[in-house]
Each structure stands twice: as structure tokens, then as C-alpha cells.
Lab assay of single mutants.
Amino acid sequence: GTEDLKEEAKKALKKGDKERAKRALKKAGLSEDQIKKFIKEVL
């Protein structure tokens, strides 16, 4: 589900894998702006 994808994105970001995080967030249905915001909040 969406929460799982967001968790996956957080883990990817902590490993420095932004591309993987972006893919997971796109799958979760987030827009580009939401993805940028999510990444900023996590990092």
C-alpha cells in the first residue's frame, strides 16, 4: 500500500538512493511537488 511505499522511500533515502525513493513515491501516487517535499522532509 501507500504507507509501505513511503517506508520504502524513506529507507532508500537514508541509503542515499534518491532514484529508488522517487520510483516508490510515484507508485504511491504522489505528484512531483509532493515527492520533492517528501524528500526534503526526510533528508
Rank of each mutant, 00 (worst) to 15 (best):
L5S: 04
A9M: 03
E19I: 08
K18F: 15
L5W: 14
K40S: 14
D33Q: 09
L43H: 05
A9Y: 03
E3P: 07
K18E: 14
I35S: 02
K6D: 03
K14M: 14
R20W: 13
E41D: 12
L13W: 07
I39P: 01
A21E: 00
D4A: 14
S31L: 04
K10W: 09
K6G: 03
K15A: 15
V42G: 05
E32V: 08
Q34R: 03
K18A: 12
E7H: 07
G29P: 00
L30W: 11
T2W: 14
A21K: 00
G16R: 04
G29M: 03
I35V: 05
A12H: 10
A12C: 07
F38R: 01
E3D: 12
K26C: 05
S31E: 05
K11I: 13
Q34D: 13
G16D: 04
I39G: 00
L25Y: 01
G29C: 03
S31G: 05
K22A: 11
K15F: 10
S31N: 11
G1E: 13
E8F: 12
K22H: 12
G1Q: 12
S31Y: 02
L5V: 05
K22I: 15
I39F: 11
Q34P: 00
K40G: 09
A9G: 02
S31R: 05
L25R: 01
T2K: 10
A24S: 06
Q34S: 05
D33F: 07
R20Y: 11
E7K: 08
L43R: 05
K40M: 14
K15T: 12
E7Q: 09
L30E: 01
G1M: 13
R23I: 14
A28W: 04
K36D: 15
K15M: 15
K40H: 15
R20D: 06
R23G: 06
E3T: 09
A28K: 02
K36A: 14
I35L: 03
E8M: 10
A21F: 04
A28P: 00
D17F: 08
K22D: 05
A12G: 02
G16V: 02
E7Y: 07
E32H: 07
K6I: 15
G16T: 02
E8P: 01
K40Y: 15
E41A: 12
A28D: 02
K37V: 11
K15Q: 14
F38M: 03
E19T: 07
G1S: 13
E19H: 07
T2G: 09
L30K: 01
R20K: 11
L5M: 06
A12W: 15
E8T: 07
L43G: 05
E19M: 09
K36I: 14
T2D: 11
L30Q: 02
A21C: 06
R20E: 11
V42Q: 09
G29L: 03
K15N: 14
G1W: 14
I39D: 00
I35F: 02
T2S: 11
K11T: 11
K11A: 13
E41N: 09
L30V: 02
K26V: 11
K10M: 12
Q34G: 05
K22R: 14
K14E: 12
L25T: 00
E3W: 06
K14D: 06
A21M: 04
D4S: 12
I35Y: 02
E41Q: 11
K27M: 13
R23E: 14
A9L: 04
T2N: 11
A12R: 03
I35R: 02
K10P: 01
G16C: 06
V42E: 07
K11C: 11
K14L: 15
L25I: 01
K40F: 14
K22S: 08
K18W: 15
K10E: 06
D4I: 10
K10I: 15
K40D: 15
K40R: 12
K18G: 08
S31M: 04
K14T: 07
E32M: 08
I39Q: 02
E7A: 10
K15V: 14
E32R: 08
D4V: 10
E7R: 08
A24Y: 15
R23N: 10
E7L: 10
L30G: 00
K40T: 12
K26A: 11
A24M: 15
F38W: 08
L30A: 02
K36H: 12
K27C: 05
I35K: 01
L5P: 06
L5F: 10
K27P: 00
I39E: 03
L30C: 05
E7P: 01
A12V: 03
L43Y: 09
A9W: 03
A21N: 00
R23S: 11
L5D: 04
D17E: 07
E41W: 11
K37I: 14
K27I: 08
K26T: 09
R20L: 12
E3R: 09
K6S: 04
A24P: 00
K15S: 14
A24H: 06
T2P: 12
E32L: 07
I35H: 00
Q34F: 05
E7T: 08
D33K: 10
G29Q: 03
A24T: 07
D33L: 08
K14V: 10
Q34W: 04
K36S: 11
K6F: 15
T2A: 12
E8S: 06
L30F: 13
E7S: 08
I35P: 00
K40N: 14
K18Y: 15
R20M: 12
L30D: 00
A21G: 03
A21T: 02
K11V: 12
E19K: 07
D17W: 08
K22T: 13
I39S: 01
V42I: 11
A12P: 01
K11Q: 14
R23W: 09
R20H: 10
E32C: 08
L30Y: 09
R20V: 07
K37H: 11
G29D: 02
K40E: 15
K26D: 05
K6H: 09
D33I: 08
R23K: 10
L30H: 02
K36W: 11
K22L: 15
K10H: 06
K10R: 15
D17P: 01
K26L: 13
E8N: 04
K37E: 15
I35T: 03
E3Q: 10
K22Q: 11
E41R: 09
G29Y: 01
L5E: 04
K6Q: 09
K36E: 15
E19N: 07
K40W: 15
S31T: 13
G1T: 14
E8I: 12
E41F: 09
K15W: 09
D17Y: 07
A28V: 04
R20N: 09
A12L: 13
L43D: 05
D4M: 12
K14P: 00
G1N: 13
K11L: 13
A24E: 05
G1C: 11
K14W: 12
K22P: 00
A9R: 01
K11E: 14
L25S: 00
D4N: 10
Q34E: 14
T2V: 14
I39V: 05
K10Q: 06
L25G: 00
L5G: 04
G29A: 02
K6E: 08
E41T: 09
K26I: 13
K6V: 14
E41K: 10
G16Q: 03
E7M: 09
G29R: 03
I39W: 05
A21W: 04
K11F: 06
K26S: 09
I35C: 03
K22E: 14
G29H: 03
K36Y: 12
K26W: 06
L13Q: 01
K15D: 14
F38V: 03
D33M: 08
K36P: 03
K36Q: 14
Q34M: 07
K14C: 10
K6W: 15
K26G: 05
E41H: 09
A12S: 06
E32N: 09
K11N: 12
I39N: 01
F38Q: 01
Q34L: 06
L43A: 07
A12N: 04
K26F: 08
F38G: 00
D33T: 09
K11Y: 08
K27R: 12
G1P: 10
A9H: 01
D17S: 04
L5I: 05
R23A: 14
E8H: 05
A21L: 04
R20A: 15
F38C: 02
A12F: 14
F38P: 00
K14G: 07
G16H: 05
K10A: 08
A21D: 00
K26P: 00
E32A: 09
D17I: 02
V42S: 07
K10T: 08
K40Q: 14
D17M: 06
A12D: 04
K10G: 03
G29S: 02
L13M: 05
L43P: 03
L30T: 00
K14I: 13
Q34H: 04
A24I: 15
L43N: 05
E32W: 10
E3A: 11
D4R: 13
A28G: 04
R20P: 02
E7N: 10
A28Y: 06
R23C: 11
E8V: 10
K6A: 06
K27Q: 12
E32F: 07
G1K: 12
K18H: 15
A9D: 01
L43K: 05
L43S: 06
K15H: 12
K37D: 14
R20T: 13
D33W: 09
G29I: 00
I35G: 00
K36T: 12
K37M: 13
E19Q: 09
